[in-house]
Amino acid sequence: MDLLTTPFLTGTANGAILLMAALGLTLTFGQMGVINMANGEFLMVGAYMAYLTQQVLGTSGLSILIALPVAFIIAGLLGLLLEVTVIQWMYERPLDTLLATVGVALVLQQLAQDIFGAQGDPVTAPSWLGGRLSVFGYEWPHRQLFTIVLALTALGALSALLKYSSFGRQIRATVQNRQLAETLGVSTRNVDRLTFFLGSGLAGLGGVAIALISGTNPTLGTAYIIPAFLVVVVGGVGQLKGTVIAAWVVGVATAFLTDRTSGSTAQVIIFALVVIFLVIRPQGLFTVRTRSLA
């Protein structure tokens, strides 16, 4: 059983991290067509927030729980800052946002390196996360369970927000038809800003989970940004359920392939599979139906 359970559980936890990285992307990409390559660096910011909170509060049980809102808000504010200073001037040419945010990512990485050093810092899991849960003979670390719970909570909160709050309605309206939403009195500028805040904040939360599993590192975001984007594209841009399914499938498939082959071979195979999938279904798993040509 271990051959099945272990990669399944580990993969689900990895998928949960991917999901948190991808949720923000799917919102901003789906809604504004903005390709935020700096999103990976918001993960990194979140991870360093976990580290800093732990430096301040010690490794007591609470520091991680306090790190979550801190990471959410700091990463979210950084995202807001990025939107206001750079991205809002470029909505006319979304492809260029990719390049500008690559620049932002470079600057943020170097900044983290100058502040915290090129070496990563460890983040110790509090005692209540140090244990393991026995599942079908596999000793499953609590940290991974925590990651999944965190991702599901974030997902639940986000979908509730999108579905029931008036702000969520405005976001969905903007995703489906920006001009029409504006006509109906939705301030798409405000929606854009808040979406960016939310998306970046979610990445910050993901960063805390990453910090618990693999510690911090200035370049930690680069490992996640491309998989996260692939998840978004496979899931269908702007589609939460598609993103969830894609993140989970990619996470579990990677874990299974890593088990059979090696980490890098698994990555290459996953990329190849994603390309093949997109050739067959360029619009992703789910799509927002529009009548636009492009």
């Binding site: 990719l98 990555q267 997109l278 360029p282």
Partner: peptide
Amino acid sequence: ILKRRVKGAYFAILTQAMAVA
């Protein structure tokens, strides 16, 4: 990729994924 009309950001991301792979 192109015959399936993958373009814009999708194209960019796919090519970048290629470089990573």
